[in-house]
């Protein structure tokens, strides 16, 4: 039995080496970091360094949003979804669609929106109240 396991080990090793030669290409950067989802552009705050509060998905639009806060303001970042190349059954953020900022202390600039590629500030047309209310109403994940 000892002989058997030694030989098994040797044979497995040999096969492993054989395989090893054809494999082992280092993965491309775009397969290590989700470069598709980069927030290119001029945002006034380092939103990804704020505290993430909650995630939502809109199946119809094919988007996923994450809500962040720095304690005072809230930022809702919305990405198009892409299939997760590493897991069938999962979707992850793809190209950014829009960043909405709600700052209740900022007088007339309570609501700002950035979109396009690179993300650029848009003039807010119409009444943003609905968006402000919707973003303020988002519940954060209740973490134990």
């Amino acid at each position: 039995m000892k002989l058997a396991s030694t030989l098994t080990f040797a044979a497995t090793l040999a096969l492993g080496l054989l395989n090893g030669c054809t494999r082992h290409q280092p993965p491309a950067t775009s397969d290590l970091i989700n470069t598709d989802a980069t927030l290119h552009g001029q945002l006034p705050y380092p939103i990804l360094s704020w505290t993430p509060l909650v995630v939502t998905v809109d199946r119809t639009m094919g988007t996923t949003s994450t809500l962040f806060t720095d304690g005072t303001s809230r930022a809702l970042v919305t990405w198009s979804q892409r299939e997760d190349p590493h897991w069938f059954g999962a979707r992850i953020p793809g190209a950014p669609q829009r960043v909405e900022l709600v700052d209740p202390t900022n007088g007339t600039h309570q609501y700002r929106v950035f979109s396009g590629s690179p993300l650029t500030e848009q003039t807010v047309s119409g009444d943003p109240t609905e968006r402000i209310v919707a973003i303020a109403a988002m519940q954060q994940i209740e973490l134990p």
Partner: peptide, 11 residues
């Protein structure tokens, strides 16, 4: 801080 998010249709 955030690393990523996933929407898991499998579960």
């Amino acid at each position: 801080k955030i690393v990523s998010t996933t929407d898991r249709g499998d579960n």
